[in-house]
């Protein structure tokens, strides 16, 4: 019987007080990314090495000469998070050190620019953790569309104007691409579901091989909502089916969270400035996409 079955797993009550990502960082008020990394680091602990390519977290987590991380922290180029963490993990293994190597990239660094290095590292089954914090656009450079931006969302490169009304294509399903790599662990999470989030972080810490962890990270600046609503919006994303929480081991979904009551996608997009221009037809199209995804993942009609 392992400790999960005994019910000794990490929960909000016994989550350590230790902070490996210090206050004083310069993230926008209400940013979800520090919530994700702070709490993740409480479980991963001090024997961790962090790699980040260009993203907001890189800037607000370390602006010369200040660093918010209390663990070794490296900045590498945008496209090679996968290969950097592969090399670091192998070097540390050769030295006989037991260290968790973590690469944290945004959606741009994962979906678009970093996908080849990521795919290679996953295919080689390197012993690393890859975290994608997904805020659905290139927020660091001023909100440009990425492969992760959902249909209809307004960004500076998909403006709601006379010719187009926001992004024309749907969000790419990155976690599914990673699931197809037949790796030991793929998990999607949301800060709105604390127990689920902590369980997944703790589980992935103790697995050997390539682990892919994908967290939705609402962005008050880019999504244009009130900063206090960050967690509420993350929760609505899960409840509407825009974001699905599951775990997959070697390509098989082993655990999937189903919202008790599915809310219409309209309820999720309300209050987010990036969707404000959406017409009823566009909302219907987004709903159809959510329903298709729902049917594929749950194997039943919503």
């Amino acid at each position: 019987m392992d400790k999960y079955e005994r019910g000794e797993r990490m929960n909000l009550k016994n989550l350590p007080d230790d902070e490996y990502f210090t206050p004083g960082h310069t993230a926008c008020p209400g940013c979800a990314a520090p919530i994700i990394v702070r709490n993740m680091m409480k479980i991963l602990g001090k024997d961790t090495v962090i790699y980040t390519p260009a993203n907001c977290l890189l800037v607000f987590g370390g602006t010369y000469p200040y660093i918010a991380w209390k663990v070794p922290y490296f900045h590498e180029a945008f496209e090679n998070t996968g290969s950097s963490i592969s090399g670091a993990a192998r070097a540390l293994k050769k030295q006989g050190k037991k260290v968790t190597v973590v690469g944290i990239a945004g959606d741009g660094g994962t979906y678009d620019i970093g996908i080849q290095a990521l795919s290679g590292a996953a295919e080689r089954n390197e012993d690393v953790i890859y975290v994608c914090y997904d805020n659905e656009a290139y927020m660091n450079t001023g909100i440009q569309r990425s492969g992760s931006t959902p249909y209809g969302a307004e960004t500076t490169t998909t403006p709601a104007g006379k010719k187009i009304l926001g992004k024309l294509r749907h969000k790419k399903d990155m976690a599914e691409i990673m699931r197809a790599h037949d790796i030991p662990y793929v998990a999607t999470a949301s800060i709105s579901h604390i127990a689920d989030f902590l369980k997944k972080v703790e589980k992935m810490k103790n697995i050997e091989g390539f682990r892919y962890f994908h967290v939705l990270s609402p962005c008050p600046t880019g999504w244009r909502y009130d900063p206090s609503k960050t967690v509420e919006i993350a929760r609505k994303a899960v409840d509407s089916g825009m974001w699905t929480l599951y775990e997959a081991e070697y390509g098989e979904i082993t655990n999937i969270y189903k919202p008790k009551k599915k809310i219409p996608v309209e309820e999720y997009i309300r209050g987010q400035g990036r969707f404000r221009h959406m017409t009823p037809e566009m909302i219907e199209e987004l709903q159809r996409w959510v329903d298709r995804k729902w049917e594929r993942l749950y194997g039943e009609k919503p």
């Binding site: 206050p23 004083g24 310069t26 008020p29 370390g62 000469p65 200040y66 660093i67 070794p72």
Partner: peptide, 20 residues
């Protein structure tokens, strides 16, 4: 250093309370 703390964990010297 003479400019205050630098290196890992040094962002804690940056008091962000004035933002609110």
């Amino acid at each position: 250093t003479e400019a205050g703390l630098v290196g890992i964990g040094s962002f804690s010297e940056n008091k962000t309370g004035g933002w609110r």
